[in-house]
Nucleic acid binder design. Structure first.
Length: 813
RNA sequence: GCCUGAGUGGCGGAAUUGGUAUACGCGCACGACUCAAAAUCGUGUAGGUAAUCCCUGUGUGGGUUCGAGUCCCACCUCAGGCACCA
């Protein structure tokens, strides 16, 4: 008997598939396009991570399943090789990123090949390829033309270790997403994308997307829509107003002070009226110097300064109330000013306590007794008090009435801020902009409010990243390119005078925000994507990736797609029709990390057990969308399964005589049903267990050739090599991976008996094989005859009988 | 603090969505094969028990129901996300 030599088989078929272009759909002519996408890896660390393999295998199984169901599946792969991840790796190894990227590329593609995925190898995308980033720059310019790009000086996140600014989305609990250093605020002029213009649409569209719920929730929270009102507080004896945003306008009568953010522009206007401006200025300076870490360390204790000499007027009560500045008010959200309602807001209560400000109750309710001394703010709804005409109303009802009465404006606020896209690093696409001092002097520019700034003419793209020796981040406010004269000295596209090229590069997430548009069009030299092909293949039918990109890549891609759609460059506004987040793979109960030394190298396992076994084990160990624990011992179960399948195949090949068996036939139909449904819903672990159950059955009495082939097809998406080998051993023509997926006959699933469960008082007593469809009376008769049942009944007549057809009977005494 | 999930054998995990808890796999025990071991095959494997009897059992406490791993209330623990967003 031929032995199962996985090393040989896997190599052989990987080569054969590539040669036959089995996984290359006809991009222009395909009849049933299905775009099966997985998040491309960044080739930074020491080769492909088993976590990548976990994700890719899960995605590949789905793609193979669709292919066997008659779709022209397009499953591309590429490398997200630009950006800080890869650059840091290059810094670590001391190899120039240009060189390192080529080394990593070779290594990754070799590893990826060994996994046996149905990749369309001819359409690869590498974000650092000038043929690709040319179009990243081109997209930047389209956004610029549309007015969706601007440059502004404002406090931004600065990572002292990565020596660059970061987008809000890249700051996790005040730490850098990459290196976990504490992030500082720094006042810098940077490039932004107007993602906030799309906040409402990004939120609204979520409702109709077939995405993992947890990702939708994460995006929803990140966008953070709040409904509230803007209310004007006049300033006594001064023709200016303080505009505040609140979601609780019903508490307006309880506003006993107003607070401005330290960065609020109004402070400049008020300067001359503020008697203690020196003190105020000192506070502002101290705040800007304080790092977020220091703020966090101080336990968020409230600080602030009262503005002496100015008084605000509560528009509802008419009371004069003090004005403060405090860093508990954020400048980037709402109007940068809030009304302080100590009785009904925790934070305001804290502040009032510290500064001994009056607490005025305007809502009574719940069990909380609002009597002095106050212990805490009452934040729930209730009945209005101390609010003149509104007294006695329900606070929910008074909400908009109060806004109306003082001429406030109903408003939406979003938590999300504009996307900061510039970086002071080397290894990414240079931002394709030029600044001309002369035009700036004349007040001329391509966009309003941005004199002197011009996009690089499209014919001059790409702006190539120069090969410079010193690619290390400088740590100042500029990228290493700022010291490369040959790079930044250029001519103004408008007046032709000497001008300076932008030296910042773009955020890696811009590179990856559109790669799925490029995959089907990699052969296009003159356009970013071919219109006809794009129409055929996009939006992506199925996208599988990590949930960690919920508010990064997945949000940016949606935004960019929406913007490109508005510009008229594509005809859809959501990039991914269906998205599923896979779970996290851990090892022996702990997160994999280099420091713990428990990182799994897939190569090693492929070598020892074969790609098929590793693939299948990864999918078997836990539900794919949940993630789970990788244990070395577990893989043996799969190895045995594959060996036994192999042996069974050899028996079939040797033309062993087998009788037709209705039970086996039914078992097979059941398995087809279960596996089909489970793959569709990504429940691979239970699909595999169903395959095991069937194998256990089939081994006992043998299996017909036809039945075995059906069984093989069901395994094919999970273990593509061994199934292909057995398929060809059985002298089938063509690949099993384009064979028709088996269907099941619902008629054949029906058995003529079932196991009747018998309960007495809800307690299980006996199990009886009974004919399907028996009546309650019949069931009662046979059940009562059972010894255990009779014993439990103890001769008593049941008061009640619950009968569930073809399932159980329950006697209630 | 808030928002998500999730707590089931020695372990990874199943459970037709209110109807036989522990499928499938790992591990373990015993047996067969072998001079022996590995591999393979067979049998068993929630706990209490000698037991095919019985009792208990899905994080904890209560509830609804003929019947709860599944629904409701309260609590505990773990993982992930957000965090002074007014």
């Amino acid at each position: 008997m031929k032995k199962y030599d996985f090393t040989k088989i896997e190599k052989k078929w990987q080569a054969a598939w590539q040669k036959k272009k089995l996984y290359e759909p006809k991009l222009k002519a395909a009849q049933n396009p299905f775009y099966n996408l997985m998040m491309f890896p960044y080739p930074s660390a020491e080769g492909l991570h088993v976590g990548n393999m976990y994700a890719f295998t899960g995605a590949d199984i789905y793609g193979r399943f669709k292919r066997m169901n008659g779709y022209d599946v397009f499953e591309p792969i590429g490398l997200d090789g630009f950006g800080i991840h890869s650059e840091n790796y290059a810094l670590k190894t001391g190899t120039h990123p240009l060189k390192q990227s080529k080394i990593s590329e070779k290594r990754f593609y070799k590893q990826l090949e060994a996994l046996g995925n149905g990749f369309a190898w001819n359409e690869r995308v590498e974000t650092y390829d000038p043929e690709y980033y040319k179009w990243t720059q081109w997209i930047f310019i389209q956004m610029w033309k549309r007015g969706l790009v601007y440059r502004k000086k404002q406090p931004v996140n600065w990572c002292p270790s990565c020596k660059t600014v970061l987008a809000d989305e890249q700051v996790i609990s005040e730490k850098c997403e990459r290196c976990s250093s504490v992030v500082f605020k720094k006042d810098l002029e940077q490039w932004f994308f107007r993602i906030t213009d799309y906040a409402d649409r990004l939120l609204h569209n979520l409702e109709h997307l077939d995405w993992s719920e947890r990702v939708k929730i994460a995006q929803k929270n990140w966008i953070g829509k709040s409904e509230g009102a803007e209310i004007n507080f006049a300033i006594s004896d001064f023709p200016h107003i303080i505009k505040v945003f609140t979601t609780r306008p019903e508490t307006l009568y309880g506003a006993t002070y107003v607070v401005l953010a330290p960065e609020n522009e109004l402070l400049k206007t008020l300067k001359s009226k503020i008697l203690n401006f020196g003190e105020v200025k000192k506070y502002i300076e101290s705040v800007s110097e304080r790092s977020d870490e220091e703020r966090a360390m101080s336990g968020r204790e409230k600080t602030g300064v009262k503005l002496e000499g100015v008084v605000a007027i509560n528009p509802a009560s008419g009371d004069g109330i003090p004005i403060f500045i405090s860093d508990y008010v954020l400048s980037g959200y709402g109007t940068g000013a809030v009304m302080g309602v100590p009785a009904h807001d925790d934070r305001d209560f804290e502040f009032a306590k510290k500064f001994k400000l009056p607490v005025k109750i305007v809502i009574q309710g719940g069990d909380v007794k609002l009597e002095e001394p106050f212990r805490e703010a009452y934040e729930a709804h209730g009945t209005m008090v101390n609010s003149e005409n509104f007294d006695g109303m329900k606070s929910e009802d008074a909400k908009w009435e109060i806004v109306k009465s003082i001429g406030g404006e109903r408003k939406m606020q979003f938590r999300i801020r504009d996307w900061l896209v510039s970086r002071q690093r080397y290894w990414s696409a240079p931002i394709p902009m030029i600044f001309c001092e002369s035009c700036a002097f004349d007040g001329v520019g391509e966009q309003k409010d941005m004199p002197g700034w011009f996009a690089v003419p499209e014919k001059d793209l790409p702006v190539k990243l120069p090969n410079v020796k010193e690619f290390r981040p400088l740590g100042g406010e500029e990228s290493p390119l700022a010291s490369v004269k040959s790079f930044y000295v250029t001519k103004c596209p408008r007046c032709g005078k000497k001008a300076r090229r932008e030296t910042d590069v773009s955020d890696t997430f811009l590179d990856s925000a559109w790669y799925f548009l490029r995959y089907p069009s990699t052969k296009e030299k003159k356009v970013a994507w071919n219109e006809e092909i794009t129409k055929k293949w996009l939006p992506v039918n199925m996208y599988i990736g990590g949930a960690e990109h919920s508010v990064l890549h997945l949000l940016y891609s949606r935004f960019l797609t929406m913007a490109l759609s508005d510009i008229g460059l594509i005809s859809f506004e959501e990039p991914f029709t269906k998205f599923r987040a896979h779970g996290l793979l851990i090892k022996d109960g702990a997160k994999m990390s280099k420091s713990k030394g428990n990182v799994i190298n897939p190569d090693e396992y492929v070598k020892r057990f074969g790609a098929d076994a590793l693939r299948m084990y990864l999918m078997f160990l836990a539900p794919f969308e949940q993630g789970g624990d990788f244990r070395d011992a577990g893989i043996l179960g799969i190895t045995r399964f594959l060996e036994r399948t192999w042996k069974l195949g050899m028996r079939v090949g040797a033309k062993e005589k087998v009788k037709r068996d209705e039970n086996r036939e039914r078992a097979l139909h059941k398995t087809v049903k279960k596996v089909t449904e489970d793959i569709e819903s990504l429940q691979y672990n239970t699909a595999i267990s169903a395959l095991m159950v069937f194998l256990n059955e089939a081994e006992k009495n043998g299996i017909s050739r036809k039945e075995f082939e059906t069984f093989l097809k069901l395994i094919a998406p999970f273990a593509p090599h061994i199934t292909e080998e057995l398929w060809s051993e059985l002298k089938n023509k063509g690949s099993i991976h384009v064979a028709k997926w088996p269907s099941f006959d619902p008629e054949k699933l029906i058995e003529d008996t079932f196991e009747l469960a018998v309960q007495v008082n809800g307690k299980f007593r006996a199990r009886i094989t009974a004919p399907l469809g028996i009546s309650e009376a019949e069931a009662k008769t046979i059940a009562m005859q059972e010894k255990a049942v009779a014993g439990a009944l103890a001769g008593k007549e049941p008061q009640k009988v619950i009968f569930v057809e073809d399932r159980l009977i329950n006697f209630v005494l």
